[in-house]
């Protein structure tokens, strides 16, 4: 009975976080279909695992971590950067074009940063994750997460100021 309740809770956690997970993957991959494929695969991987020893309150971050690492694999496997907006076939749909333009805009800002700083900024500002959650996903200390955030944001602020002045 306990197992059944646990499974129900896990199912609810997954369903409640599906939008966040797809958004999380989308802003790293720049393609909605691939983001959904990746999230689906992450959930299947999670379901195959023996997760009885994971606390319910950690399930959400555990799945985020899987998605995060699959995104890293995808980017490292030389697949592609974001599809530039000018190569996008507008016939696919206005909404998708606007989504991609938005992702393109955000990634253009973050591309100037080292990956580990951009990663933390994405998670905090775009994905809305707290430093506690970020430290759980990336397996780093909170102070490291905050330090990377500050370092990256300082760089962005300097870039922004320089742009304004030029």
């Amino acid at each position: 009975m306990f197992k059944k309740t646990r499974h129900k809770t896990i199912s609810r956690i997954i369903e409640d976080n599906l939008d966040y997970l797809v958004s999380f993957a989308y802003y790293r991959l720049g393609n909605h279909d691939e983001a959904e494929d990746l999230v689906y695969d992450a959930i299947l991987k999670f379901l195959e695992r023996d997760t009885d020893n994971i606390k319910l309150e950690s399930i959400r971050l555990y799945i985020f971590r899987i998605v995060h690492n699959l995104c890293l694999d995808y980017v490292r496997s030389d697949h592609k950067d974001l599809l530039p907006i000018e190569n996008f076939d507008i016939g696919e749909g206005v909404d998708e074009a606007l989504d991609l333009e938005d992702a393109d805009r955000i990634n253009a800002c973050l591309d100037a940063l080292p990956l580990r700083e951009a990663d933390v900024i994405r998670m905090h500002v775009i994905d809305g994750l707290s430093f506690v959650e970020i430290s759980g996903i990336l397996s780093i200390t909170q102070s490291t997460a905050k330090s990377r955030y500050k370092s990256g944001m300082d760089k962005l602020r300097n870039l922004f100021i320089n742009k304004k002045m030029s």
Binding site: S11, I14, E15, L18, D19, L21, V22, S23, Y26, Y27, H32, A35, E36, V39, Y40, I43, L44, L47, L98, D99, D102, I106, C109, L110, I121, V125, I126, M153, L156, R157, F160
Partner: peptide, 29 residues
């Protein structure tokens, strides 16, 4: 101090899971 930068980075679109994905996930669950 980073209010302006945060505003710059804030997504303006709402990315959501499709119905198709929700159905697939429910089946898997």
């Amino acid at each position: 101090d980073y209010k302006e930068i945060k505003e710059l980075l804030k997504p303006r679109r709402d990315i959501k899971a499709s119905e198709e994905l929700r159905l697939k996930v429910n089946r898997a669950l």
